[in-house]
Computed example of a mutant assay.
Amino acid sequence: MIDRVITSGTFSLDGGTWDVDNNVWLIGDAREVIVVDAAHDAAPIAERVGGRSVRSIVCTHAHNDHISAAGELAALTGAPIRLHPADQVLWEEVYGPEVTYEPLADDEKLTVGGITLQVLHTPGHAPGAVCLYAPDLGAVFSGDTLFKGGPGATGRSYSSFDTIIESIKDRLLTLPPETVVHAGHGESTSIGAEAADLEEWIRRGH
Results as ranks from 00 to 15, higher is better:
residue 3 D to P: 02
residue 5 V to Y: 00
residue 6 I to M: 02
residue 7 T to M: 00
residue 9 G to I: 00
residue 10 T to Y: 00
residue 14 D to H: 09
residue 17 T to P: 01
residue 18 W to M: 05
residue 19 D to R: 09
residue 21 D to E: 03
residue 33 V to S: 06
residue 37 D to I: 08
residue 38 A to D: 05
residue 41 D to I: 01
residue 44 P to M: 06
residue 52 R to N: 09
residue 52 R to C: 06
residue 58 V to Y: 14
residue 64 N to G: 15
residue 65 D to P: 11
residue 69 A to P: 12
residue 71 G to S: 06
residue 72 E to K: 13
residue 73 L to P: 10
residue 75 A to Q: 15
residue 78 G to P: 14
residue 79 A to P: 12
residue 81 I to L: 03
residue 81 I to Y: 01
residue 83 L to H: 06
residue 89 V to A: 12
residue 91 W to C: 05
residue 92 E to G: 12
residue 93 E to G: 11
residue 94 V to K: 09
residue 95 Y to S: 06
residue 96 G to N: 09
residue 99 V to N: 06
residue 101 Y to W: 15
residue 104 L to A: 05
residue 106 D to M: 01
residue 109 K to G: 03
residue 110 L to M: 12
residue 115 I to Q: 12
residue 115 I to G: 13
residue 116 T to H: 09
residue 118 Q to P: 02
residue 122 T to H: 14
residue 131 C to H: 09
residue 132 L to A: 11
residue 136 D to L: 13
residue 137 L to Q: 15
residue 138 G to L: 02
residue 140 V to R: 02
residue 142 S to D: 04
residue 144 D to W: 05
residue 146 L to A: 08
residue 147 F to G: 04
residue 152 G to Y: 05
residue 153 A to W: 01
residue 153 A to K: 01
residue 153 A to D: 04
residue 154 T to V: 04
residue 158 Y to T: 14
residue 163 T to C: 03
residue 166 E to C: 07
residue 166 E to Q: 12
residue 168 I to L: 07
residue 168 I to Q: 08
residue 169 K to Y: 13
residue 171 R to G: 08
residue 175 L to Y: 12
residue 178 E to T: 14
residue 181 V to T: 13
residue 181 V to L: 07
residue 194 E to T: 14
residue 197 D to C: 02
residue 201 W to M: 09
residue 201 W to Q: 11
residue 202 I to C: 15
residue 205 G to Q: 09
residue 205 G to T: 13
